[in-house]
């Protein structure tokens, strides 16, 4: 199964790099937010695959913390944008 997992991880990482285009050049703040969210999801799946590639269960905890942090960070940035944290 290991070569398959490596292939899946590489595909997901290429997808994350393509998302970087939208995160850098997005016309508004919100496009950047959803691009960062999608990068976070891809990297989360890659982290869980790494737990099986390297046979270390610690990566599952890292993925857990990563998912929670991703959620909290994006909600905080969105809240800030909605209530006028960004100059218009």
């Amino acid at each position: 199964m290991n070569p398959f997992f490596v292939g899946v991880s590489l595909t997901l990482l290429i997808g994350a790099f393509i998302c970087l285009y939208r995160a850098i050049l997005g016309p508004t703040l919100f496009e950047r937010i959803i691009a960062v969210n999608l990068i976070g999801t891809n990297v989360l799946v890659v982290l869980i695959l790494m737990a099986y590639l390297f046979k270390q269960a610690v990566y599952l905890d890292v993925a857990f913390a990563y998912a929670l942090l991703n959620f909290v960070a994006i909600i905080a940035v969105t809240r800030c944008a909605e209530t006028g944290g960004e100059p218009k």
Partner: peptide, 22 residues
């Protein structure tokens, strides 16, 4: 892994609604 999946489902929905509303 199942707990992470549930977290992904709810957080994805909430992020979508929050960004759309903002």
């Amino acid at each position: 892994l199942l707990v992470i999946t549930g977290l992904m489902l709810t957080s994805g929905l909430v992020i979508g609604h929050a960004v759309a509303r903002a």
